[in-house]
Amino acid sequence: MELAQAKHAFITGGASGIGLGVGKALAAKGLRITIADIDGAAIDAVLATEGEAFRGVVLDVRDRAGWAKAKAEAEAAFGPVDLLFNNAGIASFGYEIADMAPEAFDRIVAVDLTGVFNGVSAFAADMRARRHGHILNTSSMAGICAPSQAIGGSYAAAKFGVVGLSETLRVELAPHGVGVSILCPGQTTTGIAQNSMKLGGDMRLPPGRSVSDSPPAHSSPCEVGTVDELAERVLSGIEGNAPYIITHGRGWWPLAHARHVAIEAAFDGMYGDA
């Protein structure tokens, strides 16, 4: 979608981190921005500095009635949403799957995966009817290749789910002129650890680390990127209707490649080389 044809973006997790960075970049292109976030104080801080291009709404992405209310308020203020960015997410770092509390698993899947579906459910049919719009869903490099580091099995499961949901949605909406992209950031300086704790998340931290450390306390195979760098790639990916937007992922490629090689070998073992 050409950003020159877009007027209104709705961004969850929009009061900090990746959501706010992309919101600022889109506002610089002339879009009006609705930032939806569970943290009302963070929304107020953004609105105090960003001017009339921004408005905010408190939203827990698990709340479907809240989605309907937020959509109605956003479109009453700024008109139909042209760009939906399902970005809100939490994590539970440091726990192997066998050690995770079931309620932690459920909470992360509810925010990171079902929350994405709730956004799609609220906006996609309208975009399809108007034959105009773009949906950007945040997954992760952990949604392409589950790393060996204990970043939390529920996080990887939810982010893999976002990829599957988005790939299907892209096929369904393409004939109607609506684009879908999957954002797969590598390790980026955001407040995900702190935001996760606000929703009851838990972090098993190594000695000497605290939840205020950024990025979250787990090892990473690649460099740490900035939100500004990521935002530039996001805008380019939207304009090109890229299926996947990869950022700062150079060090992740060996893991992704190994996974694809294993899948290819499984097919070759079943069907031979033909």
Rank of each mutant, 00 (worst) to 15 (best):
residue 170 R to Q: 13
residue 19 G to F: 11
residue 61 V to T: 12
residue 22 V to M: 10
residue 235 L to D: 00
residue 192 I to W: 07
residue 203 M to E: 01
residue 64 R to E: 14
residue 114 T to V: 15
residue 68 A to Y: 10
residue 70 A to E: 12
residue 8 H to S: 10
residue 220 S to K: 09
residue 260 H to M: 14
residue 124 A to R: 07
residue 131 R to I: 01
residue 93 F to N: 13
residue 109 V to T: 11
residue 200 G to N: 09
residue 209 R to V: 06
residue 14 G to C: 06
residue 106 D to P: 05
residue 124 A to V: 13
residue 86 N to I: 02
residue 261 V to E: 14
residue 89 G to C: 01
residue 11 I to H: 09
residue 267 F to Y: 14
residue 49 T to I: 00
residue 225 G to Y: 02
residue 31 L to M: 12
residue 116 V to N: 09
residue 11 I to Y: 09
residue 105 F to N: 05
residue 122 A to D: 10
residue 16 S to F: 00
residue 40 G to A: 11
residue 212 S to I: 00
residue 209 R to E: 00
residue 65 A to W: 01
residue 9 A to K: 08
residue 8 H to Y: 01
residue 223 E to V: 08
residue 136 L to P: 05
residue 267 F to M: 12
residue 82 D to M: 05
residue 82 D to F: 06
residue 157 A to Y: 10
residue 100 M to L: 13
residue 211 V to N: 09
residue 181 S to A: 04
residue 151 I to K: 02
residue 117 F to M: 14
residue 22 V to A: 08
residue 105 F to Y: 12
residue 230 L to K: 06
residue 130 R to D: 02
residue 139 S to M: 01
residue 239 E to F: 02
residue 147 P to D: 04
residue 4 A to T: 14
residue 1 M to T: 15
residue 176 H to I: 00
residue 18 I to K: 02
residue 172 E to T: 00
residue 136 L to C: 04
residue 248 H to E: 01
residue 220 S to M: 08
residue 92 S to A: 09
residue 234 V to K: 04
residue 106 D to G: 07
residue 65 A to I: 04
residue 177 G to Y: 10
residue 51 G to F: 05
residue 257 H to N: 13
